[in-house]
Simulated scan of single mutants.
Amino acid sequence: MKTHLNHVRVNVSNITRALKWYEEILGFENDGGWPMENPTYYDFKSEEGAKFAIMEVKDKQSHGRMNFDVEHVDELWESLKDKVEIVESLYDTPWGTRKFTIRDLDGNELGFGGKVNDH
């Protein structure tokens, strides 16, 4: 399988404290939060390559997350869903893609997404 890494997310225990640290100490530029009314997730601006983000996660078993763009996401879902620990089942995102997330053997989350017209 060929992939394109498009997103790396670090899980944090306190989104407000973490956002302030990344902005004020490291100089990262916030590119928006989600959900809009009470963000628990923030992207940071990037020039090229994978986007970096932080998300407040209370689950002590959850580590980082990497999201990959893949072709034929529905086919990949069908081939993996009975073999892996599922974090999020395949769903349509508000951004016009389909996505699912699994957990690797060490608790890291791996998201796989593709265009809606792949199914």
Score class of each variant (00 low, 15 high):
46 S>L: 02
72 H>F: 01
15 I>E: 10
58 K>S: 12
65 R>H: 09
12 V>D: 03
48 E>R: 13
110 L>I: 14
44 F>V: 07
22 Y>V: 13
96 G>D: 01
29 E>P: 00
10 V>N: 14
45 K>M: 13
92 D>V: 09
14 N>S: 03
17 R>W: 04
79 S>L: 01
71 E>S: 11
66 M>Y: 10
75 E>V: 09
28 F>E: 06
80 L>V: 02
109 E>F: 09
5 L>T: 08
69 D>E: 14
33 G>Q: 13
71 E>L: 07
25 I>K: 15
86 I>D: 11
117 N>M: 05
115 K>F: 07
109 E>H: 08
90 L>T: 09
116 V>G: 00
63 H>I: 07
73 V>W: 01
98 R>I: 01
49 G>M: 08
45 K>I: 13
38 N>I: 02
28 F>R: 13
75 E>Y: 00
109 E>S: 06
52 F>H: 11
109 E>D: 05
106 D>Y: 09
57 V>H: 10
90 L>R: 11
73 V>L: 08
8 V>H: 09
49 G>I: 07
117 N>P: 03
95 W>D: 03
40 T>V: 11
77 W>Q: 00
119 H>A: 02
33 G>C: 07
39 P>L: 07
59 D>L: 07
37 E>Y: 15
43 D>W: 13
88 E>M: 15
94 P>A: 06
20 K>G: 01
29 E>D: 06
20 K>T: 12
117 N>G: 01
62 S>I: 12
109 E>R: 10
42 Y>M: 00
66 M>Q: 04
8 V>F: 15
65 R>S: 05
90 L>C: 01
116 V>P: 00
119 H>P: 02
5 L>R: 02
3 T>H: 04
79 S>Q: 09
8 V>L: 11
18 A>D: 04
46 S>R: 06
27 G>I: 07
25 I>Q: 15
59 D>G: 03
100 F>N: 00
30 N>P: 02
23 E>V: 14
108 N>Q: 03
38 N>E: 09
43 D>T: 15
109 E>C: 04
117 N>F: 04
17 R>S: 08
103 R>V: 02
100 F>M: 06
93 T>I: 06
87 V>Q: 08
48 E>S: 12
112 F>D: 12
110 L>V: 15
22 Y>S: 06
44 F>G: 01
75 E>R: 05
20 K>Q: 12
39 P>G: 08
8 V>T: 15
46 S>P: 00
31 D>S: 07
3 T>Y: 14
50 A>M: 11
58 K>L: 07
110 L>D: 04
99 K>H: 12
69 D>Y: 10
20 K>R: 15
78 E>K: 12
75 E>I: 06
80 L>G: 00
41 Y>L: 03
42 Y>E: 00
47 E>R: 14
79 S>T: 13
25 I>N: 12
91 Y>K: 13
83 K>Y: 03
10 V>P: 05
21 W>E: 02
43 D>G: 05
100 F>H: 10
5 L>H: 07
98 R>L: 02
32 G>K: 10
117 N>Y: 11
40 T>L: 02
47 E>T: 10
54 I>N: 04
38 N>S: 10
35 P>N: 14
32 G>V: 13
68 F>G: 06
19 L>I: 15
54 I>Y: 09
38 N>M: 07
66 M>D: 00
45 K>A: 10
112 F>A: 05
54 I>M: 03
57 V>I: 14
17 R>K: 12
116 V>A: 08
96 G>F: 09
63 H>Q: 08
42 Y>S: 00
117 N>Q: 11
